[in-house]
Computed example of a mutant assay.
Amino acid sequence: MGINGRLKSFVNDLGLELIFTDMNRSGIYFSESKTIFLSTKLLEKNSDFEISHELGHCIKKHEELSAYYFASESNRRKIEFEANKIAIEILLFIWSNEYDVEKEQLNAVKFMEYYKIPWNLEGYVRESMKKFG
């Protein structure tokens, strides 16, 4: 499955490189090299959520919070959730523009299944859809 063209544009507009490599995690953003590394395992499925998640880390400059991130599991979860929220916002923008979807036609289940968004984020997806448009 290919990477969405608008998402590729976001990556390029931020001056980032996107590299698929063999690794034990889905993805990671390295600010020093302005690179998003993704697992090659994602090549067979829609990797747009993982790319958007790593873009979230870049946009929020989470690299500046590394001491906070590693200080506790609670802090790590907060930062990861913030990246997930940004990923959902990016993908909602793409979804609504790619498919010319009206706000009333947004379907959380289809959206989450298409982008392989973890189900623990369903509440935020639905909340975001209400505000969207």
Rank of each mutant, 00 (worst) to 15 (best):
M1W: 03
M1H: 06
I3P: 11
I3E: 06
N4D: 09
G5P: 05
L7P: 09
L7Q: 09
F10N: 10
V11K: 12
N12R: 11
D13M: 11
L14W: 13
G15S: 14
L18M: 11
F20Q: 05
F20K: 08
F20P: 04
T21W: 07
T21I: 15
T21K: 14
D22C: 03
M23I: 10
N24L: 05
R25N: 08
S26T: 02
S26R: 01
I28P: 07
F30K: 14
E32F: 14
E32L: 15
E32N: 12
L38Y: 03
T40V: 06
T40K: 09
K41H: 02
K41Q: 02
L42H: 02
L43D: 02
E44L: 09
E44M: 04
S47G: 01
S47H: 01
D48N: 07
D48T: 00
D48R: 01
E50D: 00
I51C: 10
I51R: 05
S52I: 01
H53E: 00
E54N: 12
E54P: 03
E54K: 11
E54F: 08
L55F: 02
L55D: 09
G56H: 05
H57S: 08
H57V: 10
I59T: 10
K60R: 15
K60H: 14
H62K: 07
E63T: 13
E63H: 15
E63A: 09
E64M: 14
E64C: 15
E64D: 15
L65R: 13
S66A: 08
A67P: 04
A67L: 10
A67V: 06
Y69Q: 02
Y69W: 02
Y69R: 07
S72R: 12
E73H: 14
S74M: 13
S74T: 15
S74V: 14
N75D: 07
R77V: 03
K78R: 12
I79F: 07
E80S: 05
E80L: 04
E80N: 08
F81G: 05
E82Q: 14
I86A: 14
I88A: 04
I88Y: 02
E89F: 05
I90D: 05
I90T: 09
L91N: 06
L92S: 13
L92P: 14
F93M: 06
I94D: 04
W95R: 03
E98Y: 10
E98G: 11
Y99W: 15
Y99V: 08
Y99T: 10
D100A: 15
D100P: 09
V101T: 14
E102C: 12
K103A: 14
K103Q: 14
Q105C: 10
Q105G: 12
L106D: 08
L106T: 06
N107P: 02
A108I: 00
V109N: 03
K110C: 00
F111S: 04
F111N: 04
M112E: 00
Y114E: 01
Y114P: 00
Y115M: 00
K116M: 00
I117T: 01
I117F: 01
N120T: 09
L121I: 01
L121P: 03
E122H: 09
G123E: 11
Y124R: 10
V125D: 02
V125R: 03
R126P: 07
R126E: 12
K130L: 11
K131N: 12
F132I: 08
G133Q: 15
